[in-house]
Nucleic acid binder design. Structure first.
Lengths: 258, 258
DNA sequence: CAGTGGTCTAGACCACGAA
DNA sequence: TCGTGGTCTAGACCACTGT
């Protein structure tokens, strides 16, 4: 792997400059024009390199102000069901969450997720999670008001950045979640998300749709989580895939798998 | 949301052209120079727009040949443990998998994943999955040869694009996987992956690291899956998060969550 | 207001594919 | 060989920040 791309070479050079202390933590880099001249590249190419380092968490750009060296944070983790007692909080890196609660009416997409008619009143919880000064993830949790009528008051304490408080709230209201399904995809940030998460529009994000149902198959909660791609991860632990199947071998050799 | 970005407007315009039939399925688009002149934009901006449509699966570029209109395929799904009998094969869209098996020695990263010393002999299975003509995902599955000595012959049939055949193989060899942990992240494709998956280096991918352990806590399998970001998804279903906990309410109001 | 990053352009050169 | 997409450059203009 020879790294023939110019902007990757430049990214390497800048990364070296950061790790060797030429550019120190918290300092402002030279302006893009100056850096481009210094490194003898065009500005678009330099910007591609800066994008790489920003995605790695080594840099943070501030429009109108400059580009600053930052300390990369440990990856943010979404690990539902990881109540196996391990101190996941060991990674606790001062996540601050701001929560706002509103009441909305379900639009088309949300209605289909929740399996309710459009226009249904829904309680919406918006979690914005920051680590230090930078936002890294946002969670939008929705519960039909018919599910837990007037019990959906303000959350008292924020224990999880992923809106699992709402599930606890439901439990207290007598609603027992049976299964939770999560659908994950990787995509580029939308303009709106880029602004919220303080990233560029070219940064990949991990998008998670979560749907919780009770024993009756009723959808009681739907959430949309967006995590910055790099420096974030989702962890799922599943039991044995084939608990005790006697593999019947009907030996087709070539593969059309479905 | 006014979509003020030029390349997004251009992407919209081209998308309209595709859906209205100005550019028909399978046809080649005008060259980038011609398109840029036609739409009155610069080529870099046009290329940003084409990247969007390519990520959506509406276009496919072939270096040296041209840009072609393609039919977007349904999302490729990774859903481990989804043996709840539902016909997931209903999404079967003619996935063709080519499998190659080699024997390697564990490098630093692989050794740490497998919890074996560096240099340990490892069987490596490489699954490359295509749908129609385009590759959409690749899975690299590794099993230490000490785990299932000479039983790690050729796979006879490819039932799953995700290397779960290897887990079946292990079962037949008397190795019982107890839990499987999956770590998911979103990032941009590396140059190598971009070539394999026939995407650009600016496309987000879903990267999945999977580690399977047996009852003794021994790591018996480690895999790295890479899925094209758009048009791919991973689905996990988890049981109730709070099976029956009596939520003790110690009412801290503001949120420092960890 | 001056300086910064954000976006877009015109044009060059290269690597690849088809004829 | 020639046309295509892949990469890079120099330079322009705008939006935002801080003075």
């Amino acid at each position: 792997m020879t790294l023939s791309l110019r902007y990757q070479q430049i990214a390497d050079e800048l990364r070296r400059g950061i790790t060797t202390g030429t550019y120190k933590l918290g300092e402002r880099l030279p302006s893009e024009d100056a850096l481009a001249a210094l490194l003898d590249v065009g500005r678009p190419t330099l910007r591609d390199a800066l994008d790489v380092l920003q995605a790695e968490g080594l840099l943070k750009k501030r429009h109108g102000s400059g580009t600053y060296v930052t300390r990369p944070q440990p990856p943010v983790r979404y690990a539902p069901g990881a109540r196996t007692g391990q101190p996941d909080a060991a990674v606790h890196s001062k996540i601050r969450t701001t929560l706002s609660v509103t009441s909305i009416k379900a639009g088309v997409k949300l209605a289909s997720l929740l399996h309710v008619p459009g226009g249904t009143p829904v309680a919406k919880y918006r979690y914005l999670n920051r680590e230090g000064e930078v936002a890294h993830s946002v969670a939008h949790v929705h519960v039909p008001q018919s599910v837990a009528d007037r019990d959906l008051r303000q959350i008292r304490e924020v224990r999880s950045p992923w809106g699992e408080d709402v599930l606890r709230l439901l439990l207290r209201a007598g609603v027992h979640v049976e299964t939770t399904a999560q659908r994950l995809a990787a995509r580029l940030a939308t303009a709106e998300e880029a602004k919220l998460l303080e990233i560029t529009i070219r940064t990949p994000v991990l998008s998670i749709e979560r749907v919780s149902t009770d024993a009756g198959g009723r959808v009681v909660e739907a959430a949309h989580l967006v995590l910055r791609g790099e420096r974030s991860e989702a962890v799922f632990t599943t039991p044995a895939l084939f608990p005790d199947e006697e593999a019947a071998d009907d030996g087709t050799v070539d593969g059309d798998a479905d």
